[in-house]
Every structure is written in structure tokens, then in C-alpha cells.
Design a protein around this nucleic acid. Sequence first.
DNA 1: AGATGGATCGTCT
DNA 2: GACGATCCATCTG
Length: 212
Amino acid sequence: MRDIVTETNHFFQSKSTIDTAKEMLGHVLTYQSDQGTLSGVIVETEAYLGPDDMAAHSYGGRHSDANDPLYQQGGTIYIYSIHSWLDMDISVQEKGLPNGILIRGVQPITGQEIMEENRKKTGFDTTNGPAKWIRAFGITDKELSGTMLNSDNFTFELKKSKTPKNILETPRVGVPNKGEWTDKKMRFIVEGNPYVSKMYKRDMDLDTFGWQ
DNA sequence: AGATGGATCGTCT
DNA sequence: GACGATCCATCTG
């Protein structure tokens, strides 16, 4: 019988990066932190396609200690800093192929009060952005970067917990002046979910949150 | 409701 | 020394 890390590995290496980015919507992340259990459903992702992708940290083969997790096996956590905040990618494809998926939005399930305290915000604003949910989860350093999902206290459920009614595809956020890479629709969101970043109120579906 | 600019710091040149 | 895969406050209409 295959163990959980091997299955996790397989999950992040057996499909195209774009298919995996879509598939991750509706899966649950859980962090057993020293504040308690914090968990949420992924509602927004972005795909970054490695050396060819002008918007990727691994563009042109850039490789440093900081972005090395992108080069590791699928399912490796990559945390990087941006303007004094932290974002998290999951590395996809086999070791040596530096593709990644940025997790941009999470709908809280467990520990919402702790998240609001960590963020000093309430409601949708608590976790509706890549750096927001990281801070909500109480992650304040890069200790997890380079470790595997499901190997310790940060887990990703391999079975989907909720199914989106519709997945909307849009250009990625914060990618200006990168030619075709600026326009490619590689951001995937659960249509209508209020925890998606930059959601307009009029586009929110507050009855179903966009789930089937 | 949508656009704009400042804050702020790790990372790379 | 410059630059963000960001966030937030503060305009303006």
C-alpha cells in the first residue's frame, strides 16, 4: 500500500500544471499550529509554468536557495516573501521541473476566530488573498518552505471536499508587461465565492458560495 | 465602485 | 541599490 506522501507526490505530478490548478479548487488545507487547528477550502489558484513563463520565479531557469522548493518533487511547499508579506506555492511536476501553483484564496472551515485575530480583520477580508490567508493561518516565517505537504503539520486532502458549480478562468493578478504571459488565463476561481481575491460584491453568490 | 500611491523588507545584482 | 506572484488607505466620481 502506498503511503500518504507518495500519493501526494502522485497527485501533483500526474496531471498538467493547469489541470492540477483547477483540480485543487474545493480541496481542504489543514494546519496544526501551536494556536490550534486551522483549516479552509481552496477557492482560488494560479498556475506558473516554469522556465518559459515570464511571470514565474523560475523564469529563464532562475534557481536560488530561496526558490529551490519549486525544483523539488510535486507537493513541496514553497513560501516566498513579497513586500513584507508571505505567499505559498505548491510545487508541481517531478523534481527538476520548476512549475508551481499559487494558492490565492481560502474559505475558512476550522479556527475562523483565530484567523480573524491573526488578521485583525473580520469576514471575507480575513482570507481573500494569497498573503492574507497565510497570515490568518498564523504563518509568519518560511519554516515550512521546502517541506512536503502531508509529511507533518501542514496537510492537503487528496479527496475533493466541495465541487465548484463553475470554474472561472482569468489572467493572473500582478503580472504587467509580460506579453502573452500577462493575458493567458491561468488564474482559476470558484465563481461567486466571496473568499476569492478582488471579488466584487455584486458577483458574490452568498447562497451557495459557488459550490454544487 | 474603481483607481492610485505609499508602506516595507527579503532577495538578488 | 532596485524591485516585487501584496495590502490598505485614500482619493474621485
